[in-house]
Simulated scan of single mutants.
Amino acid sequence: MSSLSYIDPPGPGEKASDTYHYSQSVALPSGIIKVSGQGGWDISQSIPSDMKSQIDLAFANVDRVLQSHGLRGWEDVYLWRSYAVGMDEAMKYLVPKLKERIPAHRPVWTALSVPRLGLEEMLIEIEVEAIAPPKRE
C-alpha cells in the first residue's frame, strides 16, 4: 500500500523493523496514526528484568514513535491497549504512570493479560492509536 506513510524512528524501532520485518507505525489518510506494540526496550534494544522499568521504557517508546509523526506524544492518543505478563503487577504501575504522563487526558484503554509476549524477556507491550491535529492553512 504505497499510499500510506510508514515510519520507523531511528534507534530500537528501526532495529526491530529490520530484524522482524514490520513497521513501527503507519499514518492513515484520515490523520490516524497506528503504532505497533512498543515494549520496554532501551535504545540498544536491551530489556530490563523488572516491570516498572519496562513500563517506563514502553511509554517513552510510544512518545518517540508518535513524535516522529510530528505529534506531541501521549497527549494525542485516543486509544491504547496494554498486554502484560503478570497483570496484577503491571496495573500497580500502569495507572499511576498514565496519570503522571497525561493527567488531564483519559484515552480509552483495553488491558489484556497474556502468558507471553514476542520476546521471552518482555513483560509489557503497549499499542496505541493517535490522531494528528488538523493542518492549519
Rank of each mutant, 00 (worst) to 15 (best):
M1S: 12
S3T: 13
S3D: 15
S5K: 14
S5Q: 15
Y6K: 07
P10W: 06
P10E: 10
G11L: 02
G11C: 03
G13R: 09
G13F: 06
G13A: 14
G13Y: 08
E14I: 05
E14D: 11
K15W: 15
K15Q: 15
K15N: 13
A16Q: 07
A16K: 10
T19M: 09
T19H: 14
Y20F: 14
H21T: 09
S23L: 03
S23T: 10
L28H: 15
P29C: 01
P29Q: 03
G31A: 02
I32Y: 09
I32K: 10
V35A: 02
V35M: 02
S36W: 08
G40K: 00
D42A: 04
D42E: 06
D42C: 05
D42L: 03
I43P: 03
I43L: 05
S44A: 15
Q45H: 13
Q45C: 15
I47K: 08
I47N: 09
I47S: 06
I47D: 08
I47V: 15
I47F: 01
I47E: 04
M51T: 08
M51G: 03
K52W: 13
I55E: 08
I55Q: 05
D56S: 14
D56W: 09
D56C: 10
D56P: 10
L57V: 11
A58N: 09
F59W: 04
F59T: 04
N61I: 00
V62E: 00
D63I: 01
D63T: 05
D63K: 04
D63A: 05
R64A: 11
L66G: 09
L66W: 01
L66M: 04
Q67V: 03
Q67H: 07
Q67M: 03
S68W: 01
S68D: 06
G70L: 00
G70N: 01
L71I: 00
L71G: 08
R72Q: 15
R72N: 14
G73Q: 04
G73P: 05
W74G: 06
E75N: 09
V77I: 01
L79K: 06
Y83F: 14
A84T: 09
A84W: 00
V85T: 02
V85Q: 01
V85D: 02
M87H: 11
M87P: 05
M87Q: 15
E89V: 07
E89G: 10
A90E: 07
A90Y: 10
K92E: 15
Y93G: 09
Y93T: 14
P96A: 06
K97M: 12
K97G: 12
L98W: 08
E100A: 11
E100M: 08
R101G: 11
R101Q: 12
I102M: 03
P103S: 08
H105L: 00
R106Q: 11
V108M: 10
V108Y: 12
V108T: 13
W109K: 10
W109Q: 15
A111I: 04
A111N: 10
L112N: 14
V114M: 05
V114N: 00
R116A: 15
L117S: 01
L119I: 04
E121P: 03
M122F: 11
M122Q: 12
M122L: 08
L123A: 05
E125L: 05
E125R: 05
I126Y: 03
E127Y: 07
V128C: 08
E129V: 06
A130S: 04
P133F: 02
P133L: 10
P133E: 02
P133H: 06
P134H: 09
K135L: 13
E137G: 12
E137P: 11
